[in-house]
Design a protein around this nucleic acid. Structure first.
Lengths: 211, 211
DNA sequence: ACCTAAACGGACGGAGGCGTCCGTTATCGT
DNA sequence: ACGATAACGGACGCCTCCGTCCGTTTAGGT
């Protein structure tokens, strides 16, 4: 057998490049979405294509690494919402903050809703988030603030819908998203005058792979 | 000067091909969006690329022609809504029907919201629609059914948001869209318990070109 | 039946994205 | 200071899409 000599410590320049690549990826993904060419990321990072591919053999890996902190932010938001003694207020907070997060980062939205072919890490993070929010929603419903015919897919619906909103600048994007979140929350709020909703559709929220 | 001999009557095979191309374009655009290659349209229509380009020199022209009837449908919906003696019911109908229309036809959504570089005819149709709906909304507001802080951009917001909703099949797409429209309507409905909304953002709804 | 020109579509050259190879450069242990 | 080697990036070949040219086919008037 071969005594594998994997140097688990990167050379300083390599580490440096790796960081620059991630920065470039984050910047481009957040403004232009995930469809930016790998070349473009490399160019922006000031490295050759080969270097980019050496660090991140597939686009998925790059995406997963680039959005690691966004995912943490997402998780933090959800945790914060769940910790709120008032579940309805917690849920509202989650909706508002997550919408804003997505408004600020187009790429993250795409990754999170996996428009893109299964980014594993992101998918895992999403699953956790979804589960936690489900409990929060249940509590809010029991408290009588969330309408009883709310289903979790409605939240996915809102997130997808939020993705559809595009504006020229990040500022107006966030503004629009905020208003949208406001509308969504009021649509979700229990209210006697509300007529029953059309039935919810099953959305591809967490389709488990055969893996 | 030249006595121009433009034959305003197409040869039968040409006319036939033209129809087949439009059918193919409609089918592909509606399921796959506007990004389908021109080649693909030609292939599906059973004609060569050159023939496609001869009939529709630019993609915009093809799009405009392909969505002519959708645009009429859109207009008809708005007219119907405006004709309703109850402006709120009329507005609801418009929202529901337009959302459904967009849900059934992905390409039309993109064209209508001109994700695509200015499709002139579509833009014109949109402008008419927007104006008519604005009046309808005003009446609904005066009747006290539509919340007073509603602005027209909210409707654009909903349309954009509706665009963001994607499902695996047209059926679930429509279903999801219906539920979304239902939520939107309830968010728009005047209701004493509703808190004020965040300020509306100016969306690029009808940016007039310098032309 | 025939002839003209309208209409067709295969084939071409160009642009841009992709992932990889390999000669060169720079790091780091001695 | 220097050599082994990790890391770099320019350049390559492949692919898909684009829009156009031009030799061939076919409609339709006489």
């Amino acid at each position: 057998m071969v005594t594998d000599r994997l140097p688990h410590t990167l050379r300083s320049d390599a580490l440096d490049n790796r960081e620059r690549i991630l920065d470039a990826a984050r910047a481009l993904f957040s403004t232009d979405g995930l469809d930016v060419p790998m070349r473009e990321v490399a160019r922006r990072a000031g490295v050759g294509p080969a270097t980019l591919y050496r660090h991140f053999p597939t686009k998925q890996m790059l995406i997963a690494e680039a959005f690691a902190d966004q995912l943490h932010a997402c998780r933090a938001i959800v945790d914060e919402g769940c910790a709120d003694p008032d579940p309805w207020r917690g849920l509202c907070l989650v909706i508002e903050r997550i919408c804003e997060l997505h408004a600020r980062d187009r790429g993250f939205t795409e990754a999170f809703l996996s428009t893109y072919p299964e980014v594993k890490d992101v998918a895992a993070g999403r699953e956790y988030t979804v589960k936690a929010v489900a409990e929060l929603a249940q509590r809010a419903k029991e408290a009588g603030h969330l309408r009883s015919d709310f289903v979790l897919d409605d939240l996915i619906l809102i997130l997808m819908a939020n993705k559809g909103i595009h504006a020229t600048s990040t500022a107006s994007q966030v503004k629009a998203s905020r208003r949208f979140a406001g509308l969504a929350i009021q649509a979700f709020e229990a209210c006697p005058q509300h007529a029953p909703l059309p039935p919810a559709a099953r959305l591809a929220s967490a389709a488990p792979d055969s893996t």
